[in-house]
């Protein structure tokens, strides 16, 4: 899948050159927050992402996740939907709703095994930066997906 996304993005964005005004800071590793309550999955993701040079933090609970995510110190937030104490869609509203000022700097990628609900599809597409069904991708595929984001 990462392959086809790569292909498409190169087609649709022929002018994607690194923007000189926003230098890519490779000196410090990009920070990822993985909000995921299934320990085995977060371990797998953390392992693959750490191997790829990212700095990964794991939180396994919704409210705790929101607290950390709001700090704005992460480049990418991987957000599960079915979580204890607060579901991911609610969290997405709190992180990325129109009322949030200033807007959250981090990219939010939904990683879930729930299919998108039609009734909130539009809103989720507006607020999140990506959506992945976890069962459909392997940790390595997640890494190449993330590399397109940051």
């Amino acid at each position: 899948m990462d392959q086809d996304l790569n292909q498409q993005s190169s087609q649709e964005q022929p002018k994607t050159q690194p923007d000189p005004s926003q230098p890519i800071q490779r000196s410090s590793p990009r920070k990822i927050l993985c909000i995921e309550d299934e320990r085995f999955i977060s371990d797998l993701y953390a392992r693959a992402l750490t191997n790829a040079g990212y700095d990964v933090s794991i939180v396994n609970d919704g409210e705790l996740g929101l607290h950390q995510a709001s700090s704005g110190e992460f480049d990418i937030i991987l957000l599960d939907i079915m979580l204890p104490t607060m579901n991911g869609v609610d969290m997405l509203y709190k992180l990325r709703g129109e009322h949030v000022q200033p807007p959250l700097r981090s990219k939010v990628i939904i990683t879930t095994n729930l299919d998108q609900k039609e009734d909130v599809r539009k809103e989720v597409e507006k607020m999140a930066d990506g959506y992945l069904i976890k069962a459909e991708i392997t940790p390595k595929e997640l890494v190449s997906y993330i590399q397109q984001v940051a």
Partner: peptide, 20 residues
């Protein structure tokens, strides 16, 4: 067109590259 690139198993925003 909504600026979203759809893959076989998910989607990603077209403009999400270094938007900040």
């Amino acid at each position: 067109e909504d600026g979203i690139i759809r893959g076989a198993h998910g989607w990603i925003k077209n403009h999400s590259l270094y938007r900040n």
